[in-house]
Amino acid sequence: MKKNEERIKAYNKYVSAKVPKTKPWPTLFNSFWVGGVICLIGQGINDLILFLVPNISEQSAWAYTLIALIFIAAFLTGIGVYDKIGKFAGGGSIVPITGFSNSITSPSIEFKSEGIIYGICVKMFTIAGPVIVFGVISSALVGLIYYIIYLFI
């Protein structure tokens, strides 16, 4: 058995030396500028909303901005464009909120063939579910810490 483990170790070492690596610079550059442009679009939408509706609160303006971005990303996912952007930009289109929207829309479309309930609705959060779970749990943890702090001050 020990010999087996040694072989596994040696083989894995050999393979990881042989695996082709992504050329980092082009993908880093692409993710940088695509991510930057998505954020610019967000800022543009936000400024437009503030310009058109002067009385709106800053928080509501951001909410509208994010909803608009989520809409655009869901649409681009639907027409089959977002995955091409993703292939090109990698992190550039995963990290923005549009990536979150894509990760909800794409399984919904994919599993449509299994019906509305068991397909679209059940599979909707297969990828984005963990984001909401971890987000809620970690923010609740932060809330708990603040609650304890407020108890003492």
Binding site: T22, T27, T77, G78, G80, Y82, D83, K84, I85, G86, K87, A89, G90, S93, I94, G99, N102, S103, T105, S106, P107, I109, E110, F111, I127
Partner: peptide, 8 residues
């Protein structure tokens, strides 16, 4: 992953 997911 789903086909439309934008990953590399």
């Amino acid at each position: 992953f789903p086909l439309e997911l934008g990953n590399q």
